[in-house]
Amino acid sequence: TLFEALYDYEARTEDDLSFHKGEKFQILNSSEGDWWEVRSLTTGETGYIPSPYLA
């Protein structure tokens, strides 16, 4: 399933992933509550992002 970022986000820890509004992601793991592990389709990087920032 693909999701798109609604807002920009700046990583706060080394496990987080910074991203920009409009960036698209593949969800790798959504079992961690509000923090999902994703792969950016723009950069190929993986990390955790806050799920409320996605649509």
Rank of each mutant, 00 (worst) to 15 (best):
S31T: 09
E10Y: 08
L28W: 00
W36T: 02
R39D: 00
G22N: 03
R12L: 10
S40M: 04
D15Q: 12
Y9W: 07
K21M: 06
Q26W: 12
F25E: 00
L6R: 06
L28G: 01
E14V: 11
W36D: 00
L28P: 00
S18Q: 02
F25V: 01
L17M: 13
A5W: 06
E37A: 06
E10G: 03
E10R: 09
A55K: 12
L41P: 01
Y53F: 11
T1W: 13
T13F: 15
E14W: 07
D16N: 09
T1C: 15
S18W: 05
D16H: 14
T42K: 11
E14G: 12
E23G: 15
F19M: 09
L41F: 05
E23N: 15
R12V: 12
Y53E: 10
P50N: 14
I27G: 01
S40N: 14
I49A: 10
Q26D: 14
L2E: 07
Y7T: 05
T42P: 00
G44Y: 04
S40Y: 03
N29C: 09
E45F: 08
S18E: 04
Y53A: 14
H20C: 13
H20F: 10
K24M: 13
E10W: 08
L41Q: 04
Y9I: 03
R12G: 07
S18R: 03
F25T: 00
E45H: 09
E10A: 07
E23V: 02
L41N: 02
S30F: 12
E10N: 08
G47Q: 03
I49E: 00
K24D: 01
S18N: 10
P50Q: 07
P52C: 15
K21P: 03
K24A: 05
G47A: 03
V38S: 00
E32V: 09
E32W: 10
E32A: 11
Y7R: 06
K24C: 11
Y48E: 09
T46E: 06
K24F: 11
A5Y: 02
L6W: 11
E37R: 10
W36L: 06
L17H: 02
S31F: 08
T13G: 14
Y9N: 02
Y7G: 04
E32N: 13
L17E: 02
P52S: 15
E45Y: 06
T13Q: 14
Y9T: 01
R39A: 03
K24S: 04
W35L: 07
G33S: 10
E4P: 01
E23H: 05
T42I: 08
L6D: 07
L54A: 08
G33Y: 08
D34N: 06
P50T: 07
D15P: 04
K21Y: 06
R39P: 00
D34Y: 15
S31E: 09
I49V: 14
T1H: 11
A5M: 05
H20S: 10
E37C: 14
S40Q: 04
W36R: 00
K24I: 14
S31M: 09
E37H: 13
E14H: 11
T42R: 14
L28R: 14
G47N: 01
S51R: 09
G44F: 04
L54W: 09
S51Y: 10
F3N: 09
T1N: 11
R39F: 05
E14N: 11
T43S: 08
D16G: 14
A11N: 04
G33H: 10
S30N: 11
Y53G: 10
D8H: 05
T13S: 11
G22W: 04
E4K: 02
K24P: 03
G22V: 01
W36I: 07
G33M: 08
L17T: 15
E32S: 13
W35P: 02
L54P: 10
W36Q: 00
R12H: 10
W35S: 05
D8N: 06
L41D: 11
E37V: 10
V38T: 00
R39I: 08
F19C: 05
L2W: 12
T13D: 10
I49Y: 00
I49M: 15
R39V: 07
A11H: 03
E23I: 01
Y53Q: 11
G44K: 01
S31R: 08
Y9M: 03
W35Y: 09
Y7Q: 12
A11V: 14
F3T: 03
F3Y: 12
W35V: 07
D8I: 02
P52H: 15
Y53R: 12
P52V: 15
D16A: 15
L28I: 10
S40G: 02
R39W: 03
T1D: 11
G22S: 02
R12F: 08
P52E: 15
E23A: 03
Q26G: 02
L17D: 01
G47W: 11
W36A: 01
E14C: 12
S18Y: 04
P50G: 03
Y48V: 07
E10D: 13
I27H: 02
G44N: 06
G47H: 05
I49C: 05
I27D: 02
P52Y: 15
A55V: 12
G47S: 15
I27L: 10
S51V: 07
E45I: 09
F19Y: 07
L28N: 01
F3G: 06
F3C: 10
L17K: 01
S31I: 08
L54T: 06
R39H: 03
T43V: 00
W36P: 02
W35N: 11
W36S: 00
G22T: 02
W36E: 00
F3E: 02
T42N: 07
L41A: 08
R12Q: 14
R39Q: 06
S30T: 12
S31C: 12
E32Y: 12
I49S: 00
T46A: 04
A55M: 10
G33C: 12
I27T: 04
L6G: 05
E14F: 12
I27R: 04
H20Q: 10
T42V: 09
A5N: 02
P50H: 12
V38E: 00
T43F: 13
L41H: 03
D8P: 03
A11C: 08
A11Y: 03
S18D: 02
